[in-house]
Design a protein around this nucleic acid. Structure first.
Lengths: 347, 347
DNA sequence: TTGGCAACCTGTAACGTTTCAGTATATTGA
DNA sequence: TCAATATACTGAAACGTTACAGGTTGCCAA
């Protein structure tokens, strides 16, 4: 016998957001029937089904995410886990855009989960899993033996890694073929008569460090060039550090006549270092660099570049996670993107 | 096909995620009491309160977001609405990192809501509001008369804009002082004896287009320099377009001897165009450019730069939205960031 | 003694959804 | 004809939380 203002009981009008109850009232059916009709359950009559779906479309019904999530545990969320310090530069936004392309026509939302240098990279992943905040996770800065991948695999949470692991475990990934990149970069330099080459590597602990180093080393011996060790430098060091170390290197008598650089920002620093030492790009030394946007040729047209498409990476990663969520085999959701050829400045 | 084994009735052990019910069982209290105790309600005894909070911390209780959201309507979500085509480059990730700094120790999540060129910019905002997907919204590419701001204001949804509006309506914003930037840029060029200046503007419809143009124009008349019209170009055109138009401009007899550029990427194109025309930066022409990372001086040390900090923008925008959500006055949540001085290459 | 009141705690309902266990009606098989 | 069965639908319960409307104590003033 209570006269409370019960909200959505019987209004067919109202500015209130429609729920299943609203639809049930409008169609004269039960809430259960409406729910099942909307997801094409077979035990609902064909006509009823169409009728419900029509009305739902007309009044712009959208399932309440909180209701679904509470009842089913499904969040309809993909989380992109990012390192706040290292993941500098444009490529993060490219990945994000790639991901959003995939989820655009799905009920999925993308949340960005950051972590900082000081934290254990496992922290944000643990948080996501413990709070059940996402149906799928995308991680980057992948390591050969990656605790995050292992953790997610143990809990059965769908994920994809940007970069491969090397733990004998199967999971979706997308990777750029850095072995091929480094290999072809060396060949391109050799083709220009360069034979004393230095490599500016990816960060030491990451999987693609090894891929890059191996591609570099194999190509060196294949073309008969030699390496000028430059181990003190990697691409996630500061611009200033890379620059001064490069300048120092270039002042030695046994300096390299070619560089392979794994990132565009590092390349800017390398070139600055070369010029600090009074040498000239294209004459005294050549540099092959990866880039993710078409800017390096504006910087110095003598540079040789290889393009890496991060938007594609985001796209593939999202497809992989969604595929796993949808029940596809993790092993079938792996992709490797081949580098473009080494490009010189075109007119 | 239901994979849940659930039932959380009376287990004090279990791998299940703890809920209020779990806590109630463990403490011997009612669910209501536990709920109130956790939020420091005054009608709960001090000792009980501490006891509950202790147990909650011990077992790592985290409120279920779906439960809260369903019951209260509070999503604990901030949405960053981004244009997928225009918002190129690194600065998006900077904004994201700025936002995450603010929400790091709060229950808030950041979701990225994209829209593409083809869509009405109002679409994603409407979606967010209609589905109640966020407690607060951050929008960029703000226009003087911005339908999104008007819409959100009408519905009473907290938001902040990157850039100001000019509709006589009060709302939180963060903006970079582009008037001051353009003004000081002109003065710096005048200080180097340049007096025929061209401006590469922001996109035409956005508020900061006017700010920039006004700062430029006012400074011109203050220092007695003149403008070389270059209206066919703005910063969200392609690199190639800007480059070729700049080259054309520089081949005319009445070419400018100074440029003011509103974005780093455009500056690369401008310099390329200048050099295509056979002219030399620093000798024939000077360029003042905004930049959001410290890269332009590596590109050409003759460039004059002004720094714009997008991480700060993200930080301030997030603070503003959160402040509004927390009940602060929208009018008190506005900030304007002053440009650095015009910087020449430092040794 | 009684009533009033403050301090502290609790059960129930509701948010919107899906699942479980049905019910009612029509259809079929013998 | 009756029972078995298929078809189409439905109410109630549950997910975890908070708001509402109480309920018990114990203490104090009258």
């Amino acid at each position: 016998m209570d006269r409370r203002i019960t909200r959505n009981d019987d209004d067919a009008s109202g500015k209130e957001r429609p729920t299943l109850k609203t639809l049930a009232f409008m169609t004269g059916l039960g809430v259960t029937t409406v729910s099942r009709a909307l997801k094409d359950a077979p035990e609902i009559g064909a006509e009823t089904r169409r009728r419900v779906q029509l009305v739902a479309k007309q009044i712009g019904y959208r399932p309440n995410r909180a209701g679904v999530r509470l009842r089913t545990g499904k969040t309809n969320v993909i989380s992109l886990v990012l390192n706040t310090e290292h993941e500098l530069m444009s490529f993060v936004s490219d990945i994000i855009y790639g991901v959003t392309e995939v989820i655009a026509d799905t009920p999925y939302h993308l949340i960005v989960t950051p972590y900082s240098r000081s934290q254990d990279p496992l922290d944000p992943v643990r948080y996501l899993v413990e709070t059940g905040s996402a149906d799928g996770v995308i991680i980057s800065r992948t390591q050969p033996n990656d605790p995050r991948a292992r953790y997610l695999l143990e809990r059965g949470i769908p994920f994809a890694t940007h970069g491969r692991t090397d733990m004998g475990l199967v999971h979706p990934y997308h990777d750029f073929d850095n072995y091929a990149f480094a290999n072809e970069a060396v060949r391109a330099l050799a083709g220009k008569g360069r034979n004393r080459l230095a490599l500016v590597t990816p960060p030491l602990g990451l999987t693609y460090y090894r891929h890059t180093v191996n591609g570099f080393a194999d190509a060196l011996s294949e073309v008969g060039a030699s390496e000028v060790p430059f181990n003190t430098v990697s691409i996630d060091q500061s611009i200033e550090q890379i620059r001064t170390r490069t300048a120092q290197l270039m002042q030695r008598k046994d300096r390299p006549d070619g560089f392979v650089s794994s990132a565009a920002a590092a390349t800017l620093a390398i070139v600055a270092g070369i010029e600090d030492a009074g040498l000239k790009l294209g004459r005294d030394v050549d540099v092959v660099s990866k880039q993710s946007s078409e800017l390096l040729h504006l910087f110095r047209r003598e540079l040789l570049v290889v393009n890496e498409n991060f938007r594609l990476a985001g796209f593939e990663l999202a497809r992989a996670v969604m595929g796993w969520i949808a029940g596809q085999e993790p092993g079938s959701l792996q992709s490797l993107s081949k580098p473009s050829e080494v490009l010189a400045y075109r007119g």
